[in-house]
Simulated assay, not measured.
Amino acid sequence: MISPLTSSPEDRAGAVLTVDLAALVENWRRLKRKAGAACDMGAVVKADAYGLGLAPVARALKDAGCATFYVAHLDEAVALRGIIGPSPRIVCMHGPTPGRTERDFAAHNVIPVLSTAEHIKAWRKFAVAADVLMESMIQIDTGMNRLGLTAREFTTHMDDPEGFLGLHPLALMSHLACADTPSHPLNRLQQERFASALATFRTKFGDAKGSLANSAGILLGPAWHYDFARPGIALYGARATIDGPAWPTVPVVRLAARILQVRRVDAAAPVGYGATVQAPDGAKLATVSMGYADGLLRAASPGGSGVLDGFKVPILGRVSMDLTTFDVSLVPESSAVPGAFIEVIGAAHTVDDLAREAGTVGYEILTALGARFHRRYLPAPPPSARTS
């Protein structure tokens, strides 16, 4: 018989991930105010809500008034439906597997995004055979060359009386390729192409809405907003743009790693696998219980850092699977002790700071967050405290 654990999950954890749901909701509200009342401000919660936990994130946003949620895969949509109940819209951006999963979309009231001629044909066939009249979104490509009908395919479907027969499109949608660089000329070109296609689409579906803007697209201005906005990264407190002034998001994530051991290097010596870095004579090193298995990317060494007692502490040597060593030589002895925590992500060392050090983007940092942390969720305001 296995004895029950007497210690707390936090005491056993090598690192603690704190998610501030009130900050998340505030970021959603700021974007909603930016886009205006005419735009349905949704939330992209794919990839386990960018690594932060689908259930707590979705519930907080639903309670705040979010009515449309976006995921990538059908299994994500089904899990989300069980969390948020029957009323909110769930849009599955990868759409159905043609001829195989349409019935599951209908059973769970998941709106499919139809991006290919095969998608459209299979959905139309299913809708007619099952006598289902259900909303969908039609995706067109306006310059990203990733998903969506090409301009030629869109024109072919519009010209064919049976091209969209049997469909009940809620919206036409597309995706911006360079919205994170506001000055990029493709932003305006995609907006113009989308506006033209939407006007054409509405000659056949007069009530069809438009959806173009992701987080960075919302910041481009009203011409990109249309009827449905799909923010992701900005909800979670990371920067949506590469250049220009940063949108004022509230930090959502704090990740702190527990120090296991502190040592003094008596003489200059290598640190970590490969002996790639030399610790100088007299350096003070702290090794924490966190590594690339937890989402601290190996690319963060060298160049990565954390914060301990207000001091920036650089990573020394390679990040390994479960352990990372920091140079804490400048930190007071009273603070650099086993059991103390080095902040890897927080207000003083943000998601974007860590991403820059690792040569990547905030998206990858968040979605790489591992499952071994102890997770704490700071509550969002109750629904009664909702503001517009």
Rank of each mutant, 00 (worst) to 15 (best):
residue 353 D to T: 12
residue 13 A to W: 06
residue 323 L to E: 12
residue 151 A to I: 01
residue 272 G to R: 01
residue 192 E to Q: 15
residue 55 A to Q: 15
residue 292 Y to V: 02
residue 210 G to Q: 09
residue 71 V to R: 07
residue 247 W to G: 00
residue 124 R to F: 02
residue 251 P to M: 08
residue 101 T to V: 02
residue 321 M to D: 11
residue 241 T to K: 03
residue 234 A to F: 07
residue 111 I to T: 15
residue 37 A to M: 06
residue 180 D to Y: 12
residue 61 L to K: 06
residue 30 R to M: 12
residue 38 A to T: 10
residue 141 D to E: 06
residue 236 Y to D: 06
residue 74 L to C: 11
residue 315 I to K: 08
residue 204 K to N: 09
residue 4 P to T: 07
residue 183 S to I: 08
residue 229 A to G: 08
residue 185 P to V: 12
residue 317 G to I: 03
residue 240 A to L: 03
residue 54 L to F: 07
residue 376 R to T: 13
residue 327 D to K: 04
residue 381 P to R: 00
residue 351 V to M: 08
residue 134 M to N: 04
residue 350 T to A: 04
residue 251 P to N: 05
residue 339 G to S: 10
residue 150 T to E: 09
residue 179 A to Q: 10
residue 178 C to L: 11
residue 345 I to L: 15
residue 267 A to M: 13
residue 135 E to S: 09
residue 59 R to S: 07
residue 197 A to W: 11
residue 239 R to G: 01
residue 148 G to A: 06
residue 91 V to A: 01
residue 165 L to F: 10
residue 271 V to A: 03
residue 274 G to R: 01
residue 256 A to V: 04
residue 302 P to G: 02
residue 331 V to H: 12
residue 352 D to R: 10
residue 173 M to W: 03
residue 256 A to Q: 14
residue 262 V to A: 04
residue 191 Q to V: 13
residue 77 A to K: 11
residue 234 A to K: 00
residue 8 S to I: 04
residue 218 I to Y: 05
